[in-house]
């Protein structure tokens, strides 16, 4: 790890480009080679689980357990994919993907936008009871869902919302405590001078939020969106309890519905569908992550 520690600050080398390049040249090349070598090898270990999963998803049924450690199957068996995609009794993964994409997208938008608004309230507006409500919000994170499930089920039953997406989506109108707290921390590292300047110009609190704070929160919001999408995509306990009709099942639920410890299980199909289910999460990550580094930071008091 020492190598990385020493290496780390060099990562922030962008401004150094202005220095005279010649004496640095050779060292820079060596550094680049070392960087890619170290990071590349580590990458293999990080990617191994996924490589193994994808490899196993192409193994025929009698090879899954008999040739377990291999990444590359002896016999290439793509049939696992159509077998898995077929789903259950005519309800295919087309349905599950449609439901999951709907839920994860809408859930993420609700969660992240509500969290930003609430976080701004906590971080920049001073009101009576602020600290107490903030503490209450944190405490809600500390109680396992498992002991809340049954009373919550009865509440939603009274509301007549069983077998719908409402119990999954509506609680998100208040944001999520995790994201609220995260965004608060980001807002608090933004200097107040800009707010005050805007205020003198006559902007309202909401105006400051929209025009001053929000643009500077892009990295935080992107991060929250990536997490929220993945967590929503992967969620199973709450969907399991509230979604009864197989037409409403999510990908996460369907994956758990493939196997029976005491009966016959098509492991190839499970591996195939598990590997495939990583794809949307990956796509979201790849397309969002570049906002975390590209372009010049708009932050700061420079101007």
């Amino acid at each position: 790890m020492a190598g990385i520690e020493a290496q780390a600050p060099a990562g922030l080398s962008a401004p150094r480009v202005v220095r005279p390049a010649v004496p640095w040249c050779q060292r820079a090349v060596a550094r680049t080679v070392f960087y890619h070598l170290a990071v590349g090898v580590t990458c293999f270990f990080m990617l191994y689980p996924i490589l193994w999963l994808v490899g196993s998803s192409f193994k025929p049924p009698d090879e899954i357990w008999t040739n377990q450690t291999a990444i590359i199957p002896n016999e290439f068996y793509p049939q696992n994919y159509p077998n898995g995609w077929a789903g259950f009794g005519g309800i295919s993964f087309t349905t599950f993907y449609r439901n999951s994409l709907f839920y994860a997208t809408l859930g993420t938008i609700l969660s992240v936008s509500a969290s930003s608004v609430v976080a701004y309230g906590f971080a920049r507006v001073r009101f009576r009871g602020r600290r107490i409500w903030f503490a209450v919000m944190l405490v809600t994170l500390m109680l396992p869902t498992q002991v809340q499930i049954i009373p919550q089920y009865i509440v939603f039953k009274q509301l007549g919302w069983l077998n719908t997406f409402y119990p999954l989506l509506l609680p998100r109108i208040g944001g999520s405590a995790f994201f609220i707290f995260m965004i608060i921390q980001f807002i608090r590292s933004i200097p107040v001078d800009l707010d005050e300047a805007a205020m003198i110009d006559g902007a309202s609190k909401f105006g400051i939020f929209l025009r001053v704070i929000l643009p500077q929160l892009t990295p935080a919001i992107i991060t929250a969106a990536i997490f929220s999408f993945y967590w929503t995509w992967d969620e199973f306990l709450v969907p399991l309890i509230y979604l009864n009709s197989p037409e409403l099942y999510l990908v996460s639920l369907a994956l758990r519905t493939f196997s029976d410890p005491s009966g016959q299980t098509d492991w190839g199909a499970i591996f195939a569908m598990s590997a495939l289910s990583l794809l949307p999460v990956f796509v979201i990550f790849i397309s969002f992550q570049r906002y975390l580094v590209e372009g010049i930071s708009t932050t700061g008091l420079k101007g």
Binding site: Y120, R126, V155
Partner: peptide, 27 residues
């Protein structure tokens, strides 16, 4: 940079509503 109860509660309102509707009772 004033204290503003009304504005504060407007901003955290969504969370309060969701808390009292969906979380307070189960907890």
């Amino acid at each position: 940079f004033g204290q503003d109860n009304l504005v504060g509660y407007l901003f955290i309102g969504p969370w309060l509503i969701a808390f009292f509707l969906f979380t307070f009772i189960p907890i």
